[in-house]
């Protein structure tokens, strides 16, 4: 039997498909299309090399910011529950998940049973999210991937004290135009440290416990991940496919619900 977990992110749409209790396939698309369309597309892409079709999926759970109004899903679940379930399948000892996506930053605390105990998200502000890093990459005229590595080479760290994207931009510009200019790598290290303070601050608000996993698209950014580790003073567990954790969790829930269903 097939089950699917859909994660309707603001930038990307992800799906994990499970055959019984094993992951059959997954996919991720970048699309600004209307939700239902994106959902169908990503599922089709995931099933492409298999013998299955959409109709073969018995139960679909949808999560993510765009989870409302996806009619092909059987159930909606909040991201918190899905992060908890997904990470618990991958790393059962993890008790805290920090997820940084394109426009969201979520911290979830997980109990011994692998369920979410508490969660907190960024509100009305993009400063601790992927958008912040993208804005900064544009400002530094550098591809995001390159920027991610640059801070690892930094010898110093520029002071970026403002959390607000707009004011932080001003600070970065003043570093660039300083005489002599602050080295690029140092500015980027400062950008990463500033965002780590923001994300770390959110995590501290619900309290960090046990092993900590870092997920979401931004977890691929090695420079930022190191900055966050440094800020929190701990090692972070990063899954191989950090964007897929919520979709995986949704798929696990889909399986449970689907099996329970008569």
């Amino acid at each position: 039997m097939l089950f699917a977990g859909l994660d309707m992110g603001s930038l990307t749409t992800k799906v994990v498909i499970m055959e019984d209790n094993e992951v059959l396939s997954w996919n991720m698309i970048n699309s600004a299309e209307e939700g239902e369309l994106r959902a169908r597309k990503v599922i089709a892409a995931a099933l492409e090399d298999t013998d299955f079709r959409l109709e073969d999926i018995v139960y679909i759970v949808v999560t993510g910011a765009g989870r409302k109004s996806i009619s092909l899903a059987h159930k909606q679940r909040a991201p918190g529950s899905c992060f908890a379930r997904g990470i618990n399948r991958l790393f059962p000892t993890v008790r805290t998940v920090i997820d940084v996506g394109a426009e969201t930053c979520t911290v979830v605390r997980i109990n011994e049973r692998g369920a979410a105990d508490d969660s907190i998200g960024n509100e009305r502000c993009a400063s601790g999210t992927g958008v912040f890093l993208e804005t900064m990459a544009k400002l530094m005229q550098m591809p995001l991937e390159e920027m991610a590595r640059a801070s690892l080479l930094a010898e110093g760290k520029a002071e970026i004290s403002n959390m607000c994207t707009i004011f932080a931009e001003q600070e970065v510009i003043s570093h660039v135009h300083r005489d002599p200019p602050t080295p690029k790598n140092d500015i980027i290290a400062g950008i990463h440290a500033s965002m780590a303070t923001q994300v770390g601050g959110l995590a501290k608000r619900i309290g960090i416990a046990g092993d900590v996993a870092f997920t979401g698209g931004v977890a691929r950014n090695i420079g930022f991940a190191r900055a966050l580790e440094e800020h929190l003073g701990i090692r972070l567990t990063i899954p191989d496919e950090p964007e897929l954790v919520a979709a995986l969790g949704a798929a696990c829930i889909a399986r449970e619900e689907g099996v329970r269903k008569p």
């Binding site: 004290s161 959390m163 303070t197 923001q198 601050g201 501290k204 608000r205």
Partner: peptide, 11 residues
């Protein structure tokens, strides 16, 4: 004597 991030206090 600066405007710090206050993220420890905010917690």
């Amino acid at each position: 004597s600066q405007e710090p991030a206050l993220e420890e206090a905010n917690a």
